[in-house]
């Protein structure tokens, strides 16, 4: 039990740290948290009647990234022409309901909720991206690294002008 609490604390702190780096636009710092083998995907939420079927499609991915393409996205932010985030949005990532689902020797599978607030330009209306994350973290050389992120938004039609931000 004691070990469970320590692990829960460690993983939660990792997720908060990750949010802080993204909210502070420290993308290089964020990239350091990723495993080279990262799979970073966002399937499409759909309206489905039958509860037996998943209400999302993994055939359509809104993010379909690995370490190479995530690096491209980050390098793009450093050009002075990445207009979608120039000037940058203010973002606030609220991570909650952190549930450790599986623990193996050096990996944990963790589910959490994300409520991402985005304030863009002079907009007075808030963009909210709400959804569930399914992550896998792996201990690499003593540090937790993100091996897999799967994010499913709650909206079928996103109420934000683009996904120029990370989820």
């Amino acid at each position: 039990m004691h070990e469970d609490i320590i692990l829960q604390h460690e993983i939660e702190q990792w997720l908060y740290k990750e949010s802080e780096l993204l909210d502070q636009l420290n993308f290089d710092g964020w990239y350091e948290l990723l495993s080279e083998e990262i799979s970073y995907t966002m399937p499409l939420r759909i309206n489905q009647m039958e509860k037996s079927k998943p209400d999302y499609s993994e055939a359509t991915l809104l993010f379909d990234d690995d370490s190479t393409t995530l690096k491209l996205r980050i390098d793009r932010m450093k050009t002075d022409m990445a207009w979608a985030e120039l000037p940058p949005s203010r973002t606030r990532r609220n991570v909650s309901n952190v549930k450790i689902k599986e623990v193996s020797e050096n990996e944990v599978a963790v589910h959490s909720n994300l409520l991402l607030y985005r304030s863009r330009s002079t907009d007075t209306t808030a963009d909210l991206i709400s959804g569930e994350r399914k992550d896998v973290l792996r201990k690499e050389n003593g540090d937790w690294k993100l091996v897999s992120r799967w994010f499913l938004a709650d909206q079928t039609s996103l109420g934000t002008r683009n996904l120029a931000i990370f989820v």
Binding site: L44, I46, S57, T60, L61, L62, S157, L158, N162
Partner: peptide
């Protein structure tokens, strides 16, 4: 491939 993605 899949379904259309939508945003506003």
């Amino acid at each position: 491939v899949g379904l259309p993605q939508k945003w506003n």
